[in-house]
Write a protein that binds this DNA or RNA. Structure first.
Length: 118
DNA sequence: AAGGTGACAGTTT
DNA sequence: TAAACTGCCACCT
């Protein structure tokens, strides 16, 4: 009885959420890197799409640590307050200017390398 | 059930 | 050089 409705999105989204939760504080990654790590390099758009439900996920997903390939805070508009994403990143020691992360390459966190895929 | 969508990325003009 | 177009694939209505 009582089927669990939230067991629906178990495939891609959950993997994305888990991976995003593994991003260390002060580090950021890109949608493409996540998609590639999950095996679907072409599904980078879907990664961002997954973040739409990130706010209802539990535990919460640090979506602010995910930006696009250019290091631009493209998803800031999806936060409660437009500057929330930037502020969160700044509180983690990152420098953001004109909605773009400075020294992005230096703060980039590559899941494939960090998790040391065998 | 089928079509439309998108918090991207890569290619072309 | 920068801007614009297309591909993409899993989710959503």
């Amino acid at each position: 009885m009582a089927k669990l409705k939230f067991a629906k999105q178990n495939d891609f989204f959950q993997q994305v959420y888990q991976l995003v939760r593994l991003i260390p504080k002060g580090k950021v990654t890109s949608y493409g890197a996540i998609a590639k790590y999950l095996g679907s390099a072409k599904s980078s758009r879907m990664v961002g799409y997954a973040m739409n439900n990130s706010h209802v996920q539990v535990p919460p997903v640090p979506a602010h640590r995910v930006v696009n390939r250019n290091g631009v805070l493209t998803g800031k508009h999806f936060f409660a307050h437009q500057h929330e994403m930037q502020q969160l990143l700044e509180s983690e020691g990152l420098i953001i200017e004109n909605d773009q992360i400075q020294n992005f390459s230096d703060s980039f966190w590559n899941p494939s390398e960090a998790l040391q895929l065998y």
